[in-house]
Design a protein around this nucleic acid. Structure first.
Lengths: 156, 156
DNA sequence: GTAAAATAGACAACCAAGTTGTCCATAAGG
DNA sequence: CCTTATGGACAACTTGGTTGTCTATTTTAC
């Protein structure tokens, strides 16, 4: 009987798996006309969602301060992925919406993610991959969103 | 027959799993006398290793510039986890070594990682957990180290 | 109906971790 | 010996985060 693998291997492998998928996503995204979208931007654009949001709200969704959310929106706006407009019903608020360019990036990301999952399925077998996903679902909180990825590595 | 899960769930779950383990590690480490060690520091200390290293070497191991490695060493030195001494055989080089405090942090980390793995084993069953680890080993590069975690999230 | 409180966003100063570029001291090799 | 390579330090800049302060607007409460 072989002994258990050291405990530190598990988080490392989880991270390496994550990183491989994200790196391949962005390499492919670069090839498909989105060379300057960064890992974080994808999450932020997902959090912006189809109906738009505000800086304060986005901050809440992502688990960062409204100022940090505002700065990220600045960047995304400069890159042409989102645009801001004033809320006619409340002139304090600025509604942040995805541009067509942003929507394109999101749709291409979804297709690439599906392709990458097919690669894993091909290598591991669909049964094993489903078991892996199921086990991860068991061990992690049920809600996808609110992953507060931005700034996680700095934040402790 | 149920359809495949969306491709983007897999990287998210991998990351959430990683994050949960690392967050729990650091919560426990804080309780055990290491409140200010950050996720990155653990990886850096692992890379420093028992024999010590230099800034240039550490940068190579971690995949960052020597300047970045130097700054991280500054931080770790200020926190008391490593110390620098001049190499008697080459007065250009400064040898970076773990202090007893650093070694303590590393040993406690290993024990906590093993505990956390036992929790996963308890919930999923040892067989499923081993299958999960085996599948991740299949999908990720074989070498643990050289994970160039520091600065990854900024870097593309 | 107006005064007080809450909210949205902007701006500034700062931190952490990374980058490139420059420079100096020491070591190694022609 | 003189030239080149190496290790480390310093500076300026980039990103993504933080707090704190400030203004404009909207909501609430009397």
């Amino acid at each position: 009987m072989s002994s258990d693998p050291p405990g530190f291997e598990l988080p490392l492998r989880l991270f390496m798996g994550f990183r491989m998928i994200i790196d391949e996503l962005h390499a492919e995204l670069a090839r498909q006309g989105h060379p300057d979208v960064r890992p974080m931007h994808g999450f932020v654009m997902q959090a912006v969602g189809p109906h738009g949001t505000t800086a304060v709200d986005l901050g809440r969704t992502l688990g960062v301060s409204k100022q940090a959310a505002g700065k990220t929106i600045d960047t995304l706006e400069r890159l042409g992925y989102v645009e801001r407009s004033t809320d006619p019903a409340d002139s304090r608020r600025k509604i942040v919406k995805l541009t067509p360019h942003g929507i394109d990036a999101l749709m291409k990301s979804a297709a690439i993610f599906d392709d990458l999952r097919r690669t894993w399925s091909h290598t591991l077998g669909e049964d094993r991959l489903r078991a892996l996903e199921e086990d991860l679902r068991t061990m992690t909180p049920p809600d996808f969103f609110r992953l507060d990825i931005p700034g996680w590595f700095g934040g402790l």
